[in-house]
Amino acid sequence: MSSFINTSIGKKFLISITGLFLISFLAVHLTGNLFLLAGQESFNLVAHFMATDRVISFMEPLLAVGFLLHIVFTAYLTITNQFKRPQKFAKVDHRQTSSWPSQNMFVLGGLIFIFLVLHLSNFWYQMQFGEMDYILYGDIWVQDAYSLVTGKFIIWWYVLIYVAGAVFLGLHLLHGFKSAFFSLGLYNKVWGGRLMLIGAIYSIIITVGFSLIPVYFLIGHLTG
């Protein structure tokens, strides 16, 4: 196995697998977040479910490992790839040959990482270790995650950062989605176009979905 990881394709395999794992996580995350639009109680109950469900709890450390592997291996490949061309071209023109995101996956990944640190410290850290309000629904006390989130999303520059994060993520996925299938060898002439399309639609859903929520609350705040 170690010899497999030592090959370039082996590393790409791990990056793809973890990437697809993270992509599927995004769908779950977005679904949960959309409950914000359904109101305080719905969202808080969903958040509570997420925090207490056994499967989700089991997946959480795996997700962390997935992130870590994805980042470590891409960082390793990107950095070593820099040494494959010691003397750079004086002029490079990729405009007509490949998409901007595909050429800048590491940059996009880096921006997403910065966003992630901010995001985790705002919400995840706060909910794990910070002081939270609790609300009683039926007979259980539930963290008021709703107020924590909506409290942030009325600050315009917070919203801006979140929209930017969603756009970076969408661009990253635009290339990453199909690229993951590519690296796993799951691509042929028939599925090439379909994968591109599915990837593009998925990227748009993720970007729009994650942008919609903060923008919704900001507009609500400004108009209400």
Binding site: K12, H94, Q96, S98, S99, S102
Partner: peptide
């Protein structure tokens, strides 16, 4: 040689 990023520049 480096690793593949599936950018498609080679094909183009």
């Amino acid at each position: 040689f480096g690793s593949c990023s599936n950018t498609g520049a080679c094909e183009a």
